[in-house]
């Protein structure tokens, strides 16, 4: 019953003229509901374009996720393709490479969580301590730049810096008569290199949000802290960091939801034969099997698996955050 009522809300709302006529009947909870909706009709109007966007460009395509349970064929379409149940999931989980994919994905994700995630926070704190505003602005502008570069270019730059024949680093080693170092095709360095690349690219851009949070701190708090005889680090710890806490928590929860997402383009570009065993992740696998080999149902199943893990992670993290009295997402 209730569902029926809600489905009608939006159309009614658009034709705002017939306000009272339908609602006058009772003063029950339905009546109140209707009165509230009528009162806020303009808010719904404001939200409407966004809602339409989400429905058309997110939810309509998402209904096609059912092909994960089908043997999809364009000839029969989504409605006519034969159902195969969990076959694609079984194939995926029983694949020998599943554990390798899971290990690599998680490893890369956790490294990013441990090193990449705090990097902009630290940089923001450091920038905040700079006295000269000119110096601060200059450094800030410099570190933003890599954000604008595409991964293809960053791949090229990495090659220019670290490859054995062209790389600047190895050229320098050679000129010192040292052995050249194999960095790019060494499985031991691969994860570290990915993390370093991400940090290089996004650390500056990431500070924006934290610097803003810091800017919102009431200067009186600092003064009070100074009165109490707090040194720099203690002020950072007791005043600045708490001010950033909300932002950090929200970003952290969202990050956990995408724990199985790894930058596809970055890894795809950096991958080479010797590092495949540590480099292949869900995203690259989906691309290879799904797009190149045209197995759309199979790759959709993998995507669905990733999404479900993401939902679980977010809900759990959100719950934990709330339990410990932290900011939460919803």
């Amino acid at each position: 019953m209730k569902e029926l009522e809600t489905v009608q809300i939006e159309p009614k709302n658009r034709g705002a003229s017939r306000k009272a006529s339908t609602s006058g009947k009772s003063k029950t909870k339905w009546g109140r509901l209707w009165a509230d909706v009528a009162r806020d009709k303009y808010l719904y109007v404001l939200a409407l374009p966004g809602l339409i966007f989400f429905i058309i460009f997110k939810y309509v395509p998402i209904t096609n996720l059912v092909i994960a349970f089908q043997e999809y064929s364009p000839y029969f379409g989504v409605l006519g393709s034969p159902w195969v149940g969990f076959e694609h999931f079984i194939r995926f989980f029983s694949n020998n490479d599943f554990w390798m994919l899971l290990r690599n994905t998680l490893a890369i994700s956790f490294l990013s969580l441990i090193f990449f995630f705090p990097a902009p926070i630290i940089l923001a704190l450091m920038l905040n301590e700079v006295r000269s505003s000119l110096y601060k602005r200059t450094i800030q502008s410099l570190v933003y730049i890599p954000h604008f570069l595409s991964w293809v270019l960053i791949y090229g730059l990495t090659y220019l810096m670290f490859s054995q024949s062209e790389g600047l680093v190895n050229k320098w080693f050679m000129s010192m008569n040292w052995e050249t170092v194999d960095i790019l095709s060494n499985p031991n360095y691969f994860w570290a290199m990915l993390t370093a690349q991400s940090i290089w690219k996004e650390v500056g851009w990431g500070t924006i949000i934290f610097l803003a949070a810091i800017a919102g701190v009431d200067p009186q708090l600092y003064e009070a802290a100074v009165m109490d005889g707090a040194g720099r680090f203690r002020r950072m710890w007791h005043v600045t960091l708490p001010a950033m806490r909300n932002v950090i928590m929200i970003l952290l929860i969202l990050r956990l939801g995408t724990i199985l997402d790894t930058g596809f383009e970055q890894i795809y570009l950096m991958m080479n034969a010797p590092v495949t065993q540590v480099a292949e992740v869900f995203d690259t696998y989906v691309y290879r099997v799904g797009i190149r080999q045209g197995e759309f149902s199979y790759s959709t199943a993998i995507g669905l698996f990733k999404s479900i893990v993401g939902v679980i992670m977010v809900v759990t993290a959100n719950r934990l955050a709330r339990r410990y009295g932290q900011e939460s997402l919803y």
Partner: peptide, 24 residues
């Protein structure tokens, strides 16, 4: 019920749209 509402709303409208999407 809210979750249900939301999902129903979405489902109804998306079925409408994807129906004209498929085969033809």
């Amino acid at each position: 019920s809210l979750v249900k509402t939301a999902s129903l709303l979405i489902l109804a409208s998306s079925l409408l749209l994807s129906a004209c999407g498929g085969g033809s």
